[in-house]
Amino acid sequence: MSRKGVGLAAFDRSRITSAQYASHGNNLRSSHSTSLATQLSVFRSLLQQFAQTHGKDIRSNPSFRAEFARMCAAIGVDPLASSSGASGKDGGSFWSQMLGGSVNDFYFELAVKVVEVCGATREENGGLIGVKEVRDRIMSTRIEGGAEITEDDILRAVNTLKPLGSSYSTLTVGNKLYIRSIPKELNTDQSAVLEAAQLLGYVTVSMLMANLHWPRARAKTAIDDLVSESMLWVDKQCDEWEYWNPGFMLEVEEDANGR
């Protein structure tokens, strides 16, 4: 029944209306945020419950663990957010609060093993080791029935080492992921040689010359550098010396057992 006001009162009315809209908006917003907060806390407690009931599975079943980590990533929770991380005002990571640290511990323990493997093999590979080899080595020392671990877990574990300001990092050569445990940069030529050595397990000077169109001196230099870093092993008992990727020490036998 209202009619468009044309007098002065119309100004008041529009002011009142907009004020009412604003207050209603505020009400809506705050009820929205309380309901969101409720949802979030419900979700947190559910997640906590879930994590507690399935803590064992998370630790022991790699695909379960990966799914769980994926779910957390999807909702913007970093399970491994370190307690020293900037956002943690409440001390202790989200995870360690939720799981009594068991998932956190899982990765920290794994990180310790990664460090051990890297240290034990540094002499033979110059501090550069494939993620898969690290996994294989860790798995091979586990007692039967021990929890299965995946390369994905290894990578997460390496990330937990970051806050220590350590020299551990991952790097990709070709299509293979490596863990580097000494702070040494590879130049592009060295990376190219390592990449080539992944294919057959070894390279020769003439292979590099033919495939990368390098002059002999360049190929020789790149190889010699890698040999002096323990990143390549030489086999002199063939027509042309072959320079082997030490990572193949674990692989050579797979197609040739029985000796």
């Binding site: 002499e123 070894y202 040999v227 002096s228 870093e229 323990s230 092993w233 030489v234 086999d235 002199k236 008992q237 063939c238 072959e242 082997w244 193949f248 020490m249 674990l250 692989e251 050579v252 036998e253 040739a256 000796r259």
Partner: peptide, 16 residues
């Protein structure tokens, strides 16, 4: 496994 790694049988020139 490294018994089938050919360089295992060549003395490695790098000391480490």
């Amino acid at each position: 496994r490294h018994y089938n790694f050919p360089p295992f049988f060549t003395r490695q020139p790098q000391l480490t």
